[in-house]
Design a protein around this nucleic acid. Structure first.
Length: 105
DNA sequence: ATTAAGGCATGAA
DNA sequence: GTTCATGCCTTAA
C-alpha cells in the first residue's frame, strides 16, 4: 500500500520555522520529520517560496551538515550567511557548528 | 582519526 | 522526464 500523495500545508512549515529562536537553527530533515513529511527537499522548496522572509526566519534552517543554502532566495549564499551572522551565529566557510546552534522544540 | 568532495537514493512539483 | 535551499554513504587526501 503506497501512499504516494502526501500533501503538506506550507503554513505548517512556516509556523514551525517561526518558533526557532534567534541565533539558533534547525535542519531541513528535522523540520520535515516534525511536520510528518519524509522529504527534506520539499522543505527547501517551501522555504524558497517563503512569501514573508521578515516574518518567517527561513535563514534559520540549514542542511544536516550545518551548511547554508547555495541558492538562498534572499541574497543567495551570502545573504543566508549575513542573516545568520546578524544574530550572532558564527559561520565559517558557509558552515556553522550544529552541535552548538541546533534547536529542537 | 578527521574532513572534503562526489554519487546515489528519495519524494513531490 | 526533469528539477531541486536534502540526506546518507563511500572514497580519497
Amino acid at each position: 500500500m503506497a501512499m504516494t500523495t502526501q500533501q503538506i500545508d506550507p503554513e505548517l512549515v512556516y509556523r514551525l520555522v517561526r518558533r526557532i529562536p534567534s541565533g539558533r537553527v534547525m535542519t531541513y530533515g528535522y523540520v520535515a520529520r516534525l511536520i510528518g513529511c519524509n522529504n527534506p527537499r520539499l522543505i527547501g522548496r517551501i522555504l524558497h517560496n517563503n512569501p514573508t522572509p521578515e516574518i518567517t526566519p527561513c535563514h534559520r534552517v540549514v542542511n544536516s551538515r550545518g551548511e547554508v543554502a547555495t541558492n538562498f532566495a534572499f541574497g543567495g549564499r551570502a545573504g543566508h550567511i549575513e542573516r545568520l551572522q546578524a544574530e550572532g551565529v558564527v559561520v565559517k566557510n558557509g558552515r556553522l557548528n550544529l552541535y552548538r546552534y541546533l534547536w529542537l522544540p
